[in-house]
Simulated scan of single mutants.
Amino acid sequence: MTSAELSRRRVMGAGLQVFAGALAAGCSAGPAPVRRLRLATGPEGGPYNAFGKALAQAVAASGRRLEIVPVSTAASVNNLRELDEGSVDLALAMADVAEDAVLGREPFPRPVAVSALARVYVNYTHLLVPADGPVTSVQQLAGRPVAAGAAGSGVQVVAGRVLQAAGLNDGPSPAAPRQLSLAASASALREGAVDALFWSGGVPTPALSGLARELPVRFLPLDGYVGALRERYGPVYTEVSLPAAVYGLTAPVGTVGVGNYLLARDDVPDSAVRELLQVVFERWRDLLREVTAGARLEPRFAISTGQVPLHPGAAAHYRSVYG
């Protein structure tokens, strides 16, 4: 064997060793690990819980290296506290509560470091009373027991603010709010344990549709309080209408609307946020089907998050897709 052939064999052998080493390194690295994100939703059977489960299923079906784990909670206020504590990575919350958290307003003792991924849909404030009962206006709730949402929920916040705007939080004969879940509120109204029921959610809310089939109810208009709420808390509150036909209504009923945000801790990686939003916008019809009828999710709507800043990953997603 000549010296040239020997040199050539040495070079080829070295090359094969390098190739084998690179191949082994590539195989040992394997696919990127699945990133698991815990999502604070709401009570079982509620709209946040339904949205969270639908989102988890949509992400799993997408094939992305991402997993969403829905966590049942009392909803908005509780969710922001869990985000602050770091026990969850994502949360759903009503816009008014989210702004309270970011600004450090009551019930939050200091600002909470969270950001928004999207405004996903609008809640409608419902105020129901028995149709054959004596209450025909908010003012007539003075001195009466009112189901005003579970402790730690966004319903409790908006109900308290409406009662305050109506002058029923204090004075000689204030309303008497009871902290009750939606299911417990419906039972209490049906049994006569309360004279009115507050709820904030999509339209129609199945539990209220069921209640309206069992008990003739009247929906009290609340749009007259939107101005006072906006003056005190800003444009987070809007005037909307429960449409005719839902719940057996024969005409629209004006009420208070407030958005719902999908939120994240600031330390959730931008890449995970961008992947999640890709799924949200690909599957928004499925996500909203069980939450609110006829809603659409559009970018110009999604980025309207008021005082709550967009997460950098969310801002990058909207820029890359919509310019």
Rank of each mutant, 00 (worst) to 15 (best):
D223I: 05
R119N: 11
Y48I: 01
V240D: 06
A159M: 05
Q179F: 14
A75V: 10
V59R: 03
S153T: 10
G26I: 09
R64N: 02
R144T: 05
A148S: 11
L163Y: 01
G21M: 14
E290N: 07
C27V: 15
S181F: 10
Q140G: 09
A74T: 15
S115E: 14
R232M: 00
L128V: 11
L141D: 04
P299K: 10
V203L: 08
R144L: 11
T255D: 07
P33Y: 02
R178H: 12
R232V: 00
E67D: 08
Q139K: 15
V129S: 05
A207N: 00
L220G: 06
P172Q: 13
L276S: 06
A118S: 11
P130Y: 07
A93I: 10
G167C: 09
L141P: 04
Q140S: 12
S72H: 14
Y121F: 15
E106G: 00
V11S: 07
N123A: 13
L215R: 13
L288P: 04
V236H: 01
G160R: 05
P130F: 02
E275G: 12
R81I: 11
V268G: 01
A315S: 12
G201V: 03
N49P: 00
R9Y: 11
E290G: 03
V18L: 15
S241M: 07
G294W: 09
S320Q: 13
V321W: 07
P43K: 05
V88I: 10
A29R: 15
A150E: 12
V129T: 13
L222N: 09
L37G: 00
S72A: 15
T73F: 10
A186H: 05
T125K: 03
E44M: 12
G248F: 05
L211P: 03
P130C: 06
A150V: 14
D89T: 04
R119F: 03
P109V: 02
V69A: 11
G42P: 08
S241E: 15
A142I: 05
R119I: 02
V236N: 01
D100C: 02
P206Q: 02
P252D: 04
A98Q: 10
A32I: 01
P299T: 10
R110A: 12
S209R: 12
G30D: 06
T238V: 13
Q179N: 15
R289L: 13
G313M: 06
R110D: 00
Q307W: 02
G152M: 09
G149P: 01
V97F: 11
A244L: 02
G45V: 09
S173A: 15
S181D: 11
G294R: 13
Q278F: 03
V256D: 04
A20V: 14
D132N: 14
A25P: 06
V71Y: 06
V203D: 01
V236A: 03
T205F: 07
P70V: 08
V279S: 00
A316H: 02
G323H: 01
N79T: 13
T41I: 04
G201I: 01
V11C: 02
Y318L: 02
